[in-house]
Structures are given as C-alpha cells and as structure tokens.
C-alpha cells in the first residue's frame, strides 16, 4: 500500500512566534521545524511498514525551507518526498491549501493519507477533512489510535464528549492525535541514506491548479496584545492557602 503523510514546516513552538503586522502572515525568518504531530503521523505509517509491504511518501506544501522537514522525515525512514513549491502559494488560505494538497495526491496516488489533527501554527484542524472531501474518499479524523487493515481501518476517535470507535473503508484520508504514536529517532544510517532519497518538486503548473493567487480569507489588521506581567509572589510560610483565599475573595472570585 502507498501511504502519503502530510507534513507541515512550522515555526518552532519553543520560541516566541511572531506575525508580520503588515501582511498578517507568520514571520518565517525564525527557527522552523517539522510539526511534531507530523512526526507522529509518519510514525503511524512507518510502524505499519515495519510489518507490511508499504511505500511511505511525505508531502509538503511550503517555502524552500520546508525541505528541511522533508529531510527530517526521510531520515526517520520515509521512502521519498514531494515538495509543492511555488511563490504564488504564499499566504494560501485553508481552501487553497487543501485544493493544492488534493491535486498533488491525485498525482502521487495513495491507498491511505495520514495528516496531523491540527497544526501548531494555523491550528485549523480541517485539512484532512477538506482533502478527503475534495478527493471524494472516506475519512476518519482525530484518531487516538488506528489499526490499518487490508481494505479498511479501525480507530478510536477523540471528541469533547467521549471516544468513538470508528471504521472506514480504504482508500481514505485520516488524521491522528498526539496520543497515536511516539516518533522514532533518525538513526545515523538513515540520516546518511536520506541524502540519496528522491525529493520531487512540483509547481502549480505541474499540478494543473489555477495559478491566479486565490485567498478569499484575507487578513485586514493584526495587532500585538500587551505581554502579561508577574504579580504578587509569596513563599509559603504555613498560611499561603489562607492568604490565597483572601486574594480570591478580594477579586470576588470566591
């Protein structure tokens, strides 16, 4: 089976992330990494490949630097990578992102597509659902665990109200949560091998996607909110609980 994992290159959450106040776009000059949730998505694919006949492809849409995320994924064990790279994609909104990823998936072909449930920068939590809808295939999203079978898959889906046991026919697009898997480390041998693995670059023209920049969700204004300052800090001398009750009462919080 061919498994395509959707990988996003995002600003590192360990750093303070900034917005360009003019465009409202993320400032991509800071440190950026493969989104941790996508390493988990890749792990789900690689764990399946460990015991089944499968080809694992990683796909990203992003700027030149997104190659670093693809390299990381190849070093973890993916077989090949596809990079959709086109200056016209800067500032793409959700609908455009999903359209482009779906077009790329039509070209690569797939038995299963695995995405993260939500990215750490845009936090849309919708790409997997939208891509499946565009491709007209089944979807099972937000899975805490997944068992991939021959022509179907099963999983546990997390929702606010509880957990659902769901199943889906294949081919399908799924998204996984943080609970799904712990990513493996890239071994030295795989890092060396990764350098020789193929990375195919595709442009909008290659994908036959309309090249007119189209983002219907546009940013009007962005502003920084004032940073929080530290308030009172006391060291417990045996009565801090009572003092805290007094503070809360003063603020009418109890």
């Amino acid at each position: 089976m061919k498994i395509v994992v959707l990988v996003k290159h995002v600003p590192d959450t360990w750093n303070e992330r900034t917005l360009d106040l003019n465009t409202g776009w993320i400032d991509r000059t800071g440190a950026a990494v493969i989104d941790e949730i996508n390493e988990r998505a890749l792990e789900v694919a690689l764990a399946y490949q460990d015991s089944h006949d499968a080809e694992v492809v990683v796909l990203t849409m992003g700027p030149e630097q997104a190659k670093d995320s693809l390299r990381k994924a190849l070093a973890m064990g993916a077989d090949s990578a596809v990079h959709v790279l086109d200056p016209l994609l800067a500032g793409a909104d959700l609908v455009r992102t999903a359209t482009v990823l779906a077009a790329a998936l039509r070209q690569t072909g797939f038995g299963l597509v695995i995405a993260g449930n939500e990215s750490t920068d845009g936090r849309g939590g919708v790409i997997a659902s939208m891509v499946a809808e565009l491709l007209g295939v089944s979807q099972a999203t937000n899975l805490n665990s997944v068992v991939i079978g021959v022509d179907a898959l099963h999983g546990e889906r997390a929702t606010e109200a509880g957990t659902l046991t769901v199943s889906s026919v294949l081919p399908a697009v799924i998204s996984i949560t943080e609970l799904s898997a712990t990513p493996r480390f890239a071994t030295f041998r795989n890092i060396m091998r990764a350098k020789k693995k193929p990375v195919v670059v595709m442009t909008l023209a290659d994908l036959a996607v309309d090249t007119a920049p189209r983002a219907d969700a546009i940013t009007l204004a962005a502003q920084r909110t004032p940073a929080r300052a530290a308030g009172i800090k006391i060291v417990d001398a045996g009565d801090a609980g009572t003092e805290l009750a007094g503070f809360l009462a003063g603020k009418r919080l109890i």
Partner: peptide
C-alpha cells in the same frame, strides 16, 4: 512570570488549606 498570585510552596500543603478556607 505570568501569575497574578504566585505561591512558592507544596501543593499538597497549600491546596487543602485553601479548600478549607473556601
């Protein structure tokens, strides 16, 4: 750094006292 009221202390000592005070 972002707390309006911070207590340097053991939760297992401070919280029961807070619950009792409430």
């Amino acid at each position: 750094d972002i707390a309006d009221f911070g207590i340097v202390g053991d939760v297992f000592a401070v919280v029961p006292q807070l619950i009792a005070a409430i």
